[in-house]
Design a protein around this nucleic acid. Structure first.
Lengths: 242, 242
DNA sequence: CGTTGTGTTGACAAGAGTCAATGGCAGTGG
DNA sequence: CCACTGCCATTGACTCTTGTCAACACAACG
């Protein structure tokens, strides 16, 4: 709800309806598949705690991570309208997710067009993030990409209240990081060192710290507008050190 | 309608409603911007004739083309629910598009939940195509990527009835091609030559011909399922030469 | 007949991937 | 308490894909 509230207007009535949704909580270990590629899904997944990512493996063995999902995200909302998954949904860290049956969601959407629009909007923002990643992977060099990724993750963490000052948790190893950026683990490591030397980021024991937002955002060619957040608070925060 | 019919069930009633939509036809010259990045949009664009693409330019001057749209596509359906465009919509070739006011679309969607679901579904397939491109750009080498792109475009052309045998029109220059693939024009040229030598494709005077579908699809690691087409005819065609 | 857009080529540089080895560190079991 | 193991970050050396720059050919067009 916090996430939905952040991207659109959520009425008390909406909150009531959402609270009624049947949800089955599941604990997952790191690396566990939530929904495998190719399978149809009968329920949607809501991330409650931990991280989840969407990924696909090429027959060459190389893997691309399309997106990383924080608590509050619904990474497979699209399964509501597509017959089968074109990628896998995997637990990045040990985590807790809630499974909500498609039928239940369909029912409340039939009753509330405005809620339909809100969820539709959520999937559109999802697609916008894909475009941003694609732009980076296709046209920017690895250091730029990496800076951009950290910027996006900071903003999204901030929106759902997971940041502490200029830090946010990112319990992910360098192999995963490399697969998000479309590069190799070795190169990701070297790039990470470069960003550290330039004093653009700190990344240790699962936490990222951003010493100077403005510098990182510039280096990463980052513009948060594609995330379409409704929080003015965000703008305030991002400019607070200027 | 042909496109919507291809991805989901379209009733006669739906067709009636869609025919009632007010649409303003516009002729565009090559390279003309239909909707610029950053601007809000008040109407959606339906491609009637020619090609249209979505693109974004990095401050470094490098450009990524996110998607290429054939007649029947609605490339900016997402503008219905997002306040501003995170990319530009540009005419790839001289073309004809129809502009449909958001208000009119919103009105018919309010009346028909099933049509809402169908359009939502369309934007989800759009997102699935982004994932497929991202996977290629991030993890596959340029020749593979290019083969994959030609496969996708063949299938999508086929769905809307634009193919002639194993050929389809692609009036696009090598610079555009390079920007779709996230590579340089010079490299795109060399890759094109490589594919030609391997007898995987012909590409001349704006037409692509595929000598052996199976060979190209294998080389391009192509699996059409992400396009979620409903036509069995497609499967038949793709295997007709085996 | 110059101009422009486009495709093609060669030479070179730089970014990025691969392979292999090392070291730290936490957990595990004896 | 200590060996053992697995995971992960780091490094060096080497290769190769890819980008850049520059030049040239060719066709369409005014």
């Amino acid at each position: 709800m916090r996430r939905l509230g952040a991207i659109g207007h959520l009425t008390d009535q909406h909150r009531e309806v959402l609270k009624q949704l049947p949800i089955r909580m599941v604990q997952l270990t790191k690396g566990q598949e939530i929904v495998p590629e190719g399978k149809p899904a009968a329920s949607c997944c809501l991330v409650v705690d931990g991280l989840v990512h969407r990924t696909k493996v090429l027959s060459s063995g190389r893997r691309q991570i399309f997106s990383l999902h924080l608590p509050g995200d619904m990474p497979d909302l699209h399964s509501l309208h597509l017959p089968s998954m074109d990628h896998s949904l995997v637990a990045t860290t040990p985590c807790e997710v809630g499974l909500i049956p498609h039928d239940a969601i369909r029912e409340i959407l039939r009753a509330s067009p405005s809620l339909t629009d809100l969820l539709w909007r959520d999937t559109l923002i999802d697609a916008a993030a894909f475009r941003a990643w694609m732009l980076m992977i296709g046209q920017a060099e690895v250091p730029t990409r990496m800076a951009h990724l950290f910027c996006e993750l900071f903003v999204r963490s901030f929106i759902v209240g997971l940041t502490e000052g200029w830090s946010f948790p990112l319990p992910v190893n360098q192999v995963d990081l490399a697969d998000m950026l479309g590069t190799s683990a070795v190169h990701a490591n070297r790039t990470l060192q470069e960003l550290r030397v330039r004093n653009l980021i700190k990344f240790e024991s699962g936490w990222v710290t951003i010493p100077e937002w403005q510098a990182l955002a510039e280096f990463g060619l980052f513009d948060s507008s594609y995330l379409h957040p409704m929080t003015d608070r965000l703008e305030l925060t991002l400019h607070s050190t200027l």
